[in-house]
Simulated assay, not measured.
Amino acid sequence: MSDDEVMEYALQTEEAMKQNSTPELEAIQVELAKSLDIAPEEYFTHPEILEQYRDFLLINKVIDSLYEQNIINHNEYTFEDFKADLRESNKATIHINKEILEELNGN
């Protein structure tokens, strides 16, 4: 995933947000920018947000590749099935940080 692809996605996302702007969406953008201590217009190209976009785009490329290779499909063996099987087949080597899990769940 190149930096140019990530930036292009960021700018497309920003443009889509502008085109579909509502007072509620603008308020959300302001709050998200505040959480990063930046101006709202800096939000879409902030390094932390660009990393989130990079992760999102990479995950989508993996999913697309799984569909292209016919490993998963929309009917018989879905991405959810694939994730469940992956967890099951690797459960002996997966270590879960319960503190992070609780934090994510708001506990």
Rank of each mutant, 00 (worst) to 15 (best):
H74Y: 09
H74W: 03
Y53P: 03
N75L: 14
E15R: 15
E26H: 03
E76Y: 07
L58G: 01
I28Q: 14
Q52M: 06
E8G: 13
K83W: 00
V62D: 08
P23M: 06
S21K: 11
I49H: 03
P23Q: 02
K34M: 11
Y77P: 01
E103I: 06
E76Q: 10
E14G: 00
R54H: 09
L66M: 12
N97T: 05
E48G: 00
Q12C: 10
N75S: 15
P23G: 06
I72G: 07
Q29C: 08
D37E: 12
V30A: 07
I38C: 14
D3Y: 04
T22Y: 05
I63F: 11
F44I: 02
E88T: 03
N97A: 03
V30W: 06
M7G: 03
L50F: 02
E68C: 08
T13E: 08
F56H: 10
T93N: 10
I72W: 05
L32T: 06
D37F: 11
K34S: 09
L104W: 14
K98W: 09
I96Q: 04
L32R: 15
A92T: 06
N73S: 06
D81N: 11
L58T: 08
L50R: 07
E42T: 00
I59Q: 04
A39F: 10
N107A: 13
Q52A: 04
V62G: 07
E80H: 07
V30D: 05
E99T: 04
E88Q: 10
T45Q: 02
D81G: 01
E5L: 10
E103R: 10
D81F: 04
Q12L: 11
A39V: 06
N60A: 04
D64Y: 12
K34L: 14
E80V: 10
N70A: 09
Q19R: 14
D64R: 11
I72K: 07
V62P: 01
E14P: 01
K61R: 15
Y43Q: 05
I94V: 13
A16Q: 07
V62K: 12
E51P: 02
E31T: 09
E42F: 00
L11T: 12
L104I: 14
T45V: 12
E26Y: 02
A33W: 07
N60F: 02
K91S: 13
D3R: 08
V30E: 09
E14I: 03
E42A: 02
R87F: 09
Y43D: 01
K61F: 06
I71T: 15
M7T: 07
I72A: 01
M1F: 01
R87L: 11
N105L: 14
E48P: 00
Q29I: 15
N105G: 04
L58Q: 08
E103P: 00
T93H: 08
L32A: 10
E15C: 11
Y67M: 14
T22S: 15
P47H: 03
D55Q: 08
V30M: 03
E102D: 12
L57T: 02
N73M: 07
A33N: 08
L86E: 10
A84W: 01
D64M: 08
N75I: 14
S65D: 13
E8F: 07
E31Q: 12
K18Q: 11
D55Y: 01
H74T: 15
N105A: 12
